[in-house]
Design a protein around this nucleic acid. Structure first.
Lengths: 220, 220
DNA sequence: AGCACTTGTTCGACCCGTCAGTCGAGAAAG
DNA sequence: CTTTCTCGACTGACGGGTCGAACAAGTGCT
């Protein structure tokens, strides 16, 4: 705490502005938010954000980058001790949902505003998305090597899992029924991913350990 | 063709403007597109769109509404003759992907620009999305009644399927490998939905009729 | 200690392009 | 002669980005 150096102070300002931007973008959307809003939220004057970021768009990019990195690290940390690839998948799933649950602004940022930036931003977006797909793919490869998977296109499967996860996170923003805990959703999603929806013909009526209702309750 | 009545002409103008709006929004995104662009694309002067739509936002809403309706009807038509719920699911899947494939503007519209409108539009978006979820849910219910499904939360399952489908359609916009035909993707997606990714423990090594590669090829 | 001078940062008024939406003058149709 | 629709110049507001004035915190010189 003793005497922050000049560089520390500068970095602190930067994150302070990023934090403010996160809130404002989440609240109003990219186009709805003005640089004035960001400055006000951060408690600095209009020009200051421009000292740290060349323009609005760059500010947004930096924000996305930071959040994506944070999530990636969090997943990596949660998963290190676990060797089993499918178990890793489950943990990653759960951790991701938890991440977005704890800070809904980020979910809004990544799944709503990022699309708002128009065609120009598409490439960047696909690239970030790709990182997580690769993460998943990596585990799938291991699982495949161990013969745990049926023959399938791993790229496509990884993409589908990522897509699912993203939408589930996004849905929790607008869902009425917030009460359902993350673990339950993650469990249901994993069941879906691993076993699909059909009754396995060969081993009929197997009652899995995991709870799951046929009734129309339990929204995300 | 003979003598268009006044009302017919009015309706024609309306769709002419909607068509132009579709192109322009798809090309530039909601905020990137101006009403001037729309008018120019439609070959009319600036004020004309305002005669048919109260404002830019209403124009966009009408456009989304129309496209969603078109898709819904198309699915309904393709599916009527088929009673088997899982077969209906497959057809619906395929038809949806085909729909977005044939007119990529629509995919851009629904999956990119719609999110751009900020928090205010979220409700409308969720509502439209909900229609398709309900469509899927309907078939799932039938399937469940016939005992084809393992016990699961039908709402969540329907949502997950819709989410998957949306993302797959969207992915085809940015994918490098455009060559993969719709049917293949639809088939892979259906496999994923029905059976998940794991090797069924009970009946090992069953080689399904559908081709599917373990290799890293075949992007969406 | 006091003073000048520099560097890094903050402030916010202002500039300037952009665009949604308006409006009054007309053309076309009947 | 009215109704319906078209035209496009215009306006008013807004917001991204700039810029020069101020400030704070050293740094060195005396």
């Amino acid at each position: 705490m003793a005497r922050p150096s000049a560089e520390e102070k500068k970095a602190a300002r930067r994150t302070q502005i990023l934090e403010a931007a996160k809130k404002v973008f989440a609240r109003k959307g990219y186009y709805g938010a003005t640089m004035g809003d960001v400055a006000r939220e951060a408690g600095v004057s209009y020009g200051v954000p421009y000292w740290y970021f060349p323009n609005k768009m760059a500010l947004f990019e930096a924000l996305m980058e930071a959040e994506a990195e944070a999530l990636k690290e969090r997943i990596a940390r949660a998963v290190t001790a676990t060797p089993n690839p499918l178990e890793r998948l489950r943990i990653g799933l759960e951790e991701t949902l938890r991440f977005f649950d704890e800070d809904q602004s980020v979910a809004r940022l990544l799944f709503r505003d990022a699309y708002a930036l128009g065609p120009s931003f598409e490439k960047k977006l696909v690239e970030i998305y790709g990182r997580f797909v690769r993460l998943i793919r990596h585990d799938l490869e291991h699982a495949a090597k161990r013969g745990l998977l049926r023959p399938l296109d791993l790229d496509l499967a990884a993409y589908m899992i990522a897509a699912l996860l993203g939408q589930l996170a996004f849905r929790r923003l607008t869902a009425v029924e917030q009460a359902v805990p993350v673990e339950e959703i993650a469990g249901a999603a994993l069941d879906f991913i691993l076993r699909g929806i059909t009754q396995p013909l060969s081993a009929p009526k197997r009652q899995s350990g995991r709870r799951s209702t046929a009734g129309p309750k339990a929204t995300v």
